[in-house]
Write a protein that binds this DNA or RNA. Structure first.
Lengths: 204, 204
DNA sequence: CACAATACCGAATCAGCGTTCGGTATTCGC
DNA sequence: GCGAATACCGAACGCTGATTCGGTATTGTG
């Protein structure tokens, strides 16, 4: 829910929502490139075409943008992850699907993800980020659960399951740092490669 | 080389260097916790026990601290990596040694590493960071070279060598985010786990 | 058309921050 | 011990940058 009094008239509401999403996307791109603190509101206004005051029709403040960016990143990902985990496919297949969706999402929203990574310390420390934190934890819990079920039914083998999970998180979270749109590898190929490494012990 | 006129008198020079290192270490810790921009100079003075002006006997400015932190992180690591790569052990052994040293270093200097990760966008964009950038690249080149030699002599097998390298970078760079001193796993165990995943294709 | 509601403007404000600088206390080396 | 170098202090400065607010133009709706 956008913050400073979204218009009630339906015709305007559509415009408003679209413009707001546009603003958030622009912010994500700028933040990813120059950093959150390194990006001034005037750079933002320049990039959006709005004037200083105009921005504040769409956001409450600068950090509102950060929250919006994280939400756009985590909400759909978490939802998709829940869908995949709810199906009754074997754990190995669920993991592949999960990682594929995850990598695709992270590549698609790499700007959002870069911002999320950079501002991690703020996210982990401050009050207002509770929801973002719990979304992140929920996603990691789903991953861990899939690995645990795979280990339990013998379809996966880990020297140390927790370490494998953390390694996977590392690989995927680092991906936005180097991936380029139209690069040599597709998101699916990247995901498959990661899965192969994590499932190393498993004979395939 | 520290910046604002280090004392020439030897007795004082020792004190000076020690105090400066102390300041940098404190800064690394604070920056890792609250972010570079999120940490004010007054918080820094509070943590060091110095007063506002006193800090500037040891540093040129705030971003001088960032450079110092990156140097303390990268210089010794790169040196060690070069040593390991210079020995004529088989590539697989070199990789294990490299990753072990790397993980140990990153765990030991996790605050430095967290700062390095957070400020990455600034580091990649701005002029004065050239040296830091080239150190990072040099280290990655050493890693890639070991993997390439292993692939060439058949002692390692990769579905995609570049992806394996990037995955490894991801795992290790992410480690400071979760590792705790005195945690369940030692740096060596972590490193061994990472190597096993990267060397998956290789029969061991 | 008319009048709300809405969209946007942009100069002014205000707080916070990094940095400076004149001064004082302490320390080393001759 | 004397002088010069050094260590440190802390109030003041200047600036950047987020946010505000009164005003104007535009837009949907009865």
């Amino acid at each position: 829910m956008p913050v400073p009094s979204p218009p009630t008239r339906p015709a305007l509401r559509a415009r408003y929502d679209a413009r707001r999403r546009e603003v958030v996307a622009t912010a994500a791109e700028l933040f990813a490139e120059r950093g959150y603190d390194g990006t001034s509101m005037s750079e933002l206004t320049a990039a959006t075409g709005l004037a200083a005051g105009g921005l504040y029709h769409y956001i409450e403040g600068k950090d509102d943008l950060l929250i919006a960016i994280c939400d756009e990143l985590l909400e759909p990902l978490l939802e998709r992850a829940r869908e995949i985990a709810a199906e009754d496919a074997p754990p190995v297949e669920q993991l592949r699907a999960l990682v594929a969706a995850w990598v695709a999402h992270v590549v698609e929203h790499r700007h959002h993800m870069l911002v999320f990574t950079q501002e991690r310390q703020a996210i982990e420390r401050e009050r207002r980020w509770r929801r973002v934190r719990s979304q992140r934890r929920a996603f990691e819990a789903i991953l861990d659960d899939v690995l645990a079920r795979g280990e339990a039914d013998g379809s996966m083998t880990f020297a140390d399951r927790r370490l494998s999970l953390l390694a996977l998180l590392g690989m995927v979270n680092y991906t936005p740092q180097w991936v380029r749109p139209g690069g040599r590898l597709s998101a699916d190929e990247i995901a498959a490669g990661y899965c192969a490494m994590v499932l190393a012990g498993t004979d395939d």
